[in-house]
Design a protein around this nucleic acid. Sequence first.
DNA 1: ACCGAAAATGTAACCGTTTACATTTTTACG
DNA 2: CGTAAAAATGTAAACGGTTACATTTTCGGT
Lengths: 345, 345
Amino acid sequence: MVTIKDVAREAKVSVATVSRVLNGSGVVREETGRRIREVANRLRFIPHGGARSLSTSKTDTLGVLLPDLYGDFFSEVIRGMDETAQGNGFQLLLSSSHAHKHGIEAAMRAMRGRVDGVVAMSPGLDSESLSNIPASLPLLLLCSGTSGPAHSLNIENCSGARAMVRHLIASGHSSVAIIKGAVGNYDAAERLRGYRLALKDAGIQPRAALERDGHFTETGGYAAALELLGQTPRPTAIFAANDSMAIGALSAIRESGLDVPGDIAVAGFDDIPLARYVDPPLSTVRVPICELGARAITMLLSSIADRNNGHSRMRGRVSTELKIRDSCGTVSSERPPPEPSTFDL
Amino acid sequence: MVTIKDVAREAKVSVATVSRVLNGSGVVREETGRRIREVANRLRFIPHGGARSLSTSKTDTLGVLLPDLYGDFFSEVIRGMDETAQGNGFQLLLSSSHAHKHGIEAAMRAMRGRVDGVVAMSPGLDSESLSNIPASLPLLLLCSGTSGPAHSLNIENCSGARAMVRHLIASGHSSVAIIKGAVGNYDAAERLRGYRLALKDAGIQPRAALERDGHFTETGGYAAALELLGQTPRPTAIFAANDSMAIGALSAIRESGLDVPGDIAVAGFDDIPLARYVDPPLSTVRVPICELGARAITMLLSSIADRNNGHSRMRGRVSTELKIRDSCGTVSSERPPPEPSTFDL
DNA sequence: ACCGAAAATGTAACCGTTTACATTTTTACG
DNA sequence: CGTAAAAATGTAAACGGTTACATTTTCGGT
């Protein structure tokens, strides 16, 4: 590979001058600059990014740690992140499959010296592994709760779930089941909390039989729905803690010969792109997923900029909104709908 | 940050010994090793990846250049790539929004010295910009044709499209329209070629009016479908060069009050996850998208390993298969279906 | 032509590793 | 106990840039 030294030799100047010209730092004579640029082009010189960042302690790269890469949710998050990063001259170093702390730590190690900061999404992350992370690297925890010393950005899970369940109850459903997300998962726990709060608001006693695990997967949602359908009396509405499970539930219900929303209402959470395409279109709690990614990067970048300043722990929340579609039934027309079909929480 | 020097000083040895211990290279006395490891742990030493790769000329990172990050297709590709990369101890440096050569070149520059190789997906890439890419970096072109000196991996676009159109014709459709992909796009051109070949096979004269641009987008497919529906006689089948456009077409047809597949058959290409969820489920040419990503990484890695050896230009193809679902109508039962609903091309 | 300030360029240290080679220490053995 | 070979460790030069500081060149004013 051609290095800055080759350019310097060929242009009969020192490496310092070449560096100055190519970075626009310092002043150089017009003609010298022209000559150097000409040589650099002719030799197809491309600066070595790794070497440069060793000097400058800037990598212009952000690390992204994800538990998984499966499904619409992550692809949307990544898109939001990449757009924002790119807009600020940063690239993304991606690393997935880090559901557990061992993987997270290994990945963080691998990123040391390659990135200026990390956004880690690990909803099952416990505070133990957090403390093992070198505090020197700016770190933003995404959808992982607010434990630990790191900055965090979360979804308004609880109020979103609460609003949806409240809507179901207001539509006349008194027996609302929930398909819960993965155990130990922050989002899952918060959404469950919102569900219970909504029941409590309505003076309904929560029943364990109506709370089934679905692990956030489509097949999990399918299985959980089958269980719920087997109960007597059958619940009249199912709130799934994410859209994938809701879609699995939809399949289970259809295969049982029941009608949505006629026999049973279904609602999800996230509003993944798929949600409006399934039959019937899925009512869900909309999360601005792409924006979630974008804000994560924005926060991380600002924390990098503030590195030296007193940087208090930042805590962000992205708000959700109800998306009422067909899967939870048309609100009866005798009475105006209790809430507009789309509104900010 | 704590560096290898800090560890060396604290353990009263030279940096060379620390490096040897931490990398398991060279021999060190049992006790010295223990002491160094203890100190390294206590100080929470994490090697600086950038510095290390400057020494070793290995980054354990692969660059990924994508034109876009929108939709199921890319997310699946990335997943396949990440899985394979991770399995071989590599990470991915992601960079999207490189539809045009200017962006591609800039991104390649930014990656110099940060990655061991690059897989670039730029279906509109012309050979001009290819030649500007420093040949020193192993490069794999994904879905970008076979021009230029780089390795390449492509989808079997032409035979896939041909098989689908042949199927439509065999099902009784003599007037098959196509919604074409983006102009200047390799995949789009090949799929169009397959469409025309199938017509020719059947002795049908291609008609320009039946070939509309859809730009690979859902809205493009919607608009193109509306145009086609306005024609008299109306085509009885629409083959869209990707699923997104097919889904757009589905919307247009429904809004026109027509029935799929009763009034008009629709088929797509790619088999994105969404395809089987739309109503009616979409017949399509299945591309193993995830595997496409995986093979891209495999090929790139092998080309990196062979760097010095005589490395002839590698050319890969991933094969497609027909997925016949409801959107192109049930094959009439008087006669056995001309092909099984799923088969290798 | 000379002087000094300003402008242009060069020199070399540094960023944090790895590693070839040099040096020291240990070990085995006569 | 001496010695050579083997084992353990240290020294310093890379890797490819950036940049503080030193040095040289240019140039205006007298």
